[in-house]
Design a binder for these strands. Sequence first.
DNA 1: CCGCTCATGTAACTGGTTACATGATTTA
DNA 2: TAAATCATGTAACCAGTTACATGAGCGG
Lengths: 196, 196
Amino acid sequence: MVNPSTILVAMASSGDQKQAGPTELESCVLAIIERRGACTAYAVRRYLAASLSSYWSGSAGAIYPLLRKLVRAGWADFEETPFGTRKRRVYRVTSKGNGALGHWLSAPIPDGVAAYTHDPLRARVFFLDLVPPRERRAFLDDAIAQTKSLLALHQEEREELASELDDWDLHGREGAIRELSARLDWLRGVRRALPK
Amino acid sequence: MVNPSTILVAMASSGDQKQAGPTELESCVLAIIERRGACTAYAVRRYLAASLSSYWSGSAGAIYPLLRKLVRAGWADFEETPFGTRKRRVYRVTSKGNGALGHWLSAPIPDGVAAYTHDPLRARVFFLDLVPPRERRAFLDDAIAQTKSLLALHQEEREELASELDDWDLHGREGAIRELSARLDWLRGVRRALPK
DNA sequence: CCGCTCATGTAACTGGTTACATGATTTA
DNA sequence: TAAATCATGTAACCAGTTACATGAGCGG
């Protein structure tokens, strides 16, 4: 383990001057609406829930306030139609929203976006010497098994849906599969390196 | 783009019954203290800041309250020594904390830990058809360039520190490098698939 | 004695989470 | 007609962030 000699002052110095663009999830939601055409908050939630990433839960408590914020910021608007005793809001991306979206999908890619990669499994491996060898083996075996089945799941789904998916959806899924394969290889390597 | 037919009810049904173990960052901090031996909050922050992952900033506003919580939960304690007019707290992992740590590093690995993988770059690629081809190319070129230099950075640092790093640190770093390599391959593939 | 590093902390905020609550529509 | 699905939302909470504020020790 290396002794980290970095000084803390350097931590604070990422000079970005509050541009207040949409956050990651907000951009994602804008993109979803733009692609599906006008749709309700519920449709967005359903999309998020169906996506394999599970990074965002698509919970109501996140989406409804977020859509209000998109409207407030001028990135989206909605048409309200009566729906029983209630109302129903169909959201659309405004031209300003489309601009923000274009910015989200443009070079130069801001700091952190290309760097950001967090794997809680890897975080654990860094500290695996804190448990006895027996536990290490059990941990790695389980990690390998879980990664393997997750990879299989992704591959099956891709084959299943191959015909109905567009190119960019396929590219995205390919990226996830490549990452999982790499992780599996890596875990197997670590496992093999263990002393008998 | 597939029409996600998953029902939302399924979203809420991840049956975990509030075990209230340490969170990811809390476990990580426990592991850091355990490995370095007794240390101050500042040392933990410095470690986090030096780690290449950048997932956690190691900000004071996170670490100091977190350490209080660790103490409250019985996972850590501290020795307070006078330090000028102030005091200085040296934290240690308690045996209960060590138990929690052992659990963190044990099979079975809970749901989500092995699945969780979020790449904001990949999220963008899913929606890259929303911008004109010219922008797509620029985006991918930048993504490739940034990933390449990040990979180089990691590899250099590994070589530089190879002698002072222990096995598990090396394994962890290898994992990050593998992931970045896979991402780079993938991005290049996507780039090549673009029509002239 | 100035500036850097070591060190400790608080305050206000944010971007989510889970859990709750309601009601309309469709389908078996 | 009961159950599932579609749909909209709120309330309480939580883990982190940035920004601020303070002070000790040390080297030039």
